[in-house]
């Protein structure tokens, strides 16, 4: 939008919201919001604490493991479903089930099976991320234009060569799936730790909650939000780099 002839960038509106927040906090209009400046001050406190470094380490570790696992399982599974109709018919129902199921209800099961620690969080991240990767990979394979495969066939491409063509042709969708999986994974890592609640940021949240440290609580949430947004921004940028070829292909 433009104001007095200048283009005001979209995210500048967030600054306005911060001011609104400060006003709400100062005048105690909504109990939920302590003044923003207080949160900022708590931010320093949170970041410098030793438990914070530990929490971030656990969060990053379980996120990375869970996501890697989701990609390692999701992409091959999606390729399989895209290429083999029987596998597709068997598995489609489960992929769609887990895509719209309230996965947080499954976390208590993981807690019993994998204990109250990082493995549970890893599995939660995996479950949140993997299904969308499967679905998008499958869609990518199924969207490959038949003439491309006929071309490979008519030029006598070997099996390995044709496999490579499938993988590359489906790449834009696979990457889109991974990006969505990453965003879902962030939700998974947070929800997992909240429910396990004795490790990582989950432990910090319960600590602040028990000691009524509202500002600290918000500071930690802001940090998490910032990390999630940075991550999705980075992936978005990465995706733009391969967009050229998605554009040519369609």
């Amino acid at each position: 939008m433009t104001l007095l002839g200048y283009r005001v960038p979209m995210m500048a509106a967030l600054l306005v919201w911060v001011v609104v927040w400060e006003i709400i906090g100062r005048f105690d209009l909504l109990l939920l919001f302590p003044p923003f400046t207080e949160v900022l001050m708590a931010l320093g406190d949170v970041v410098t604490s030793r438990s914070f470094a530990e929490a971030i380490r656990i969060t990053a570790l379980s996120y990375a493991c869970g996501l890697a696992l989701a990609i390692a399982v999701g992409v091959p599974l999606g390729l399989l479903m895209g290429l083999v109709p029987a596998a597709d018919k068997m598995l489609n129902i489960w992929v769609n089930t887990f895509l719209s199921a309230p996965l947080s209800a499954l976390v208590p099961v993981f807690m019993i099976l994998f204990g109250l620690g990082t493995p549970t969080v890893i599995v939660t991240v995996f479950m949140f991320a993997v299904w969308i990767i499967v679905l998008d990979t499958r869609a990518g394979v199924q969207n490959i234009s038949p003439s491309l495969m006929e071309m490979a066939h008519s030029f006598g491409a070997s099996h390995a060569e044709r496999g490579k063509i499938v993988l590359l042709a489906a790449l834009p969708e696979i990457l889109a799936g991974i990006r969505l999986g990453m965003i879902r994974g962030v939700k998974g890592v947070v929800i997992g730790q909240l429910l396990v609640s004795i490790i990582g940021v989950g432990a910090l949240f319960s600590l602040y909650q028990q000691n009524f440290l509202m500002a600290h609580f918000w500071a930690l949430i802001l940090l998490l939000f910032a990390m999630a947004l940075t991550l999705s921004g980075l992936v978005g940028r990465l995706e733009k780099r391969i967009e050229y070829y998605a554009g040519v292909r369609s």
């Binding site: 939920l32 947080s104 965003i183 962030v186 939700k187 890592v189 947070v190 929800i191 909240l194 940021v201 949240f205 319960s206 909650q209 009524f212 509202m214 609580f217 918000w218 930690l220 949430i221 998490l224 939000f225 999630a228 947004l229 999705s232």
Partner: peptide, 13 residues
């Protein structure tokens, strides 16, 4: 884009 679930404990708070 953000993990809104993190706000749930705060709401209880």
């Amino acid at each position: 884009a953000a993990p809104m679930a993190a706000l749930i404990p705060l709401v209880t708070f």
